[in-house]
């Protein structure tokens, strides 16, 4: 088993963002069930937290910007750690994320095993 980071990116900036706040509201229950399903397989390392949409961006020369975004439209909406055999297994789990259908993107990264 390896550890994987699942990072959910979504548009927090645009007025007509997708997923919209209504879609996010609708997704609460499916999202909880998705996390529950990962936990039921004993593959949840760290549960997701709720992050605010405020955020700061820190850059070279002491530049601090408002907003959770860096240069692109999508910002980090959530992140958590899971256990999976390999990328195929982790990707299969990530596909269950209920807001992908509305444009959210899930980034899957494997932790480099420490030897």
């Amino acid at each position: 088993m390896n550890e994987f980071l699942l990072v959910i990116h979504r548009d927090l900036k645009s007025k007509d963002a997708s997923p919209s706040p209504e879609q996010m509201q609708q997704a609460i229950k499916p999202f909880q069930d998705w996390i529950g399903s990962i936990a039921a397989q004993n593959k949840l390392v760290n549960p997701p937290k709720r992050w605010d949409a405020d955020g700061r961006v820190v850059k070279q020369n002491n530049v601090v910007l408002n907003g959770p975004y860096a240069e692109i439209k999508e910002s980090v909406g959530g992140l958590f750690l899971i256990r999976a055999n390999d990328y195929d297994d982790a990707v299969e789990i990530a596909k269950g994320c209920p807001i992908i259908q509305w444009g959210a993107v899930v980034e899957v990264r494997m932790a480099v095993p420490t030897t």
Partner: peptide, 28 residues
């Protein structure tokens, strides 16, 4: 059953156990 499912989700997130995993699936 929605409440039972949610509670099993939370229970499994807090502490995994095979019994809870099976019962969650029954609720599902």
């Amino acid at each position: 059953w929605q409440n039972i499912l949610s509670l099993y989700n939370e229970l499994l997130i807090l502490e995994y156990s095979p019994v809870a995993a099976l019962n969650r699936t029954f609720a599902l």
